[in-house]
């Protein structure tokens, strides 16, 4: 067995890979949360449920409509995004001017209802989703075996996160979003339909969660609880990174996945709590978060 200074390199790299995979999902979900928070100033507690919805939609599409993984990767985020648009228009919009506590409770309620509905329909044991044939293989690297699908998760998530970051920070459309985040009234006075922009942004943020759900279907089992389990960690990550920074949300998501992976190797007992520990430390030292702007 390959060891270095008493460290089992196979084990270490294996956990690092798991950390990167988890981090990819953290990044996708916290990115969606950050985008929605930026413009709507609400914390979307239904983000985890939208991720779960994405995974179930992929499963249903494959098993009932014969829609392949690759098609689902495009269609499901659009469908979940459309659900998000509907949610925003019908439920979130009417209470947008109230205290944000109400929208938080609303989205939390939506999450619980969706989770309950899917448990009722599909049970809680979890459904299998096969890895697409094209990605069934793997590569042998010096200290580990890298399955193709895992590599694909890392690459696809990096491309989607990077592309989203670029769109928001470097394009004209992104300038609208950043400016709308800062001063929606003035954007409205410049002739920009801010309510429409808010709806589309919500749809996009939720669509990202749907995308993550499709990506997750072959690696985690498709179950009603998959969203709520993940979301608690993602909230901790959002607190660590600081709300409102797009790049910060992505980097913190990936970073915390890696921290978690390393902890799993060096001190497995703490692996499920390490992120919350980091959160407490960050809150004490830099309450606005690592990338947040101090108010």
């Amino acid at each position: 067995m390959a060891t270095f200074l008493g460290i089992n390199l196979f084990g270490l790299f294996g956990q690092l890979l798991v950390g990167l995979i988890n981090g990819s999902f953290y990044a996708l979900l916290s990115l969606g949360l950050a985008i929605i928070f930026g413009l709507l100033k609400i914390i979307n507690f239904a983000q985890g449920a939208m991720y779960m919805l994405g995974a179930f939609a992929a499963w249903l599409a494959l098993n009932h409509l014969g829609i392949s993984y690759w098609a689902a990767l495009i269609l499901v985020p659009l469908a979940v995004g459309a659900v998000g648009i509907l949610l925003e228009r019908v439920l979130v919009r009417p209470i947008a001017h109230e205290d944000h506590l109400y929208s938080l409770l609303l989205t939390f309620g939506i999450a619980l209802m969706l989770q309950g509905l899917f448990t009722h329909l599909f049970g809680s044991s979890g459904l299998p989703y096969a890895i697409p044939d094209e990605l069934k293989g793997g590569t042998k690297l010096p200290f580990m075996y890298l399955p193709d699908y895992r590599a694909w998760i890392i690459v696809a998530s990096a491309v989607v996160c990077g592309g989203t970051w670029w769109m928001i920070e470097k394009t004209r459309l992104g300038a609208y979003l950043r400016a709308g985040t800062e001063n929606p009234q003035l954007m409205q006075a410049f002739g920009i339909n801010v309510p429409l922009m808010v709806t589309l942004t919500f749809g996009f943020g939720v669509g990202l969660a749907g995308f993550a759900g499709v990506m997750a279907a072959p690696v985690y089992s498709v179950s009603p609880e998959m969203g709520s389990n993940l979301l608690i960690v993602v909230f901790a990550i959002v607190v660590i990174g600081g709300m409102g920074s797009i790049g910060g949300a992505i980097l913190t998501g990936l970073g915390m996945g890696i921290v978690e992976g390393l902890t799993k190797y060096f001190y497995p007992e703490a692996s499920t709590t390490v992120i919350f520990l980091v959160m407490v430390i960050v809150l004490l030292l830099k309450p606005a978060g690592l990338f947040g702007k101090e108010a």
Partner: peptide, 14 residues
């Protein structure tokens, strides 16, 4: 807008 540079500010209003 502080999140935009000068040129982005200039180009912002449609």
């Amino acid at each position: 807008f502080s999140s935009l540079n000068v040129e982005e500010n200039l180009m912002l209003p449609p």
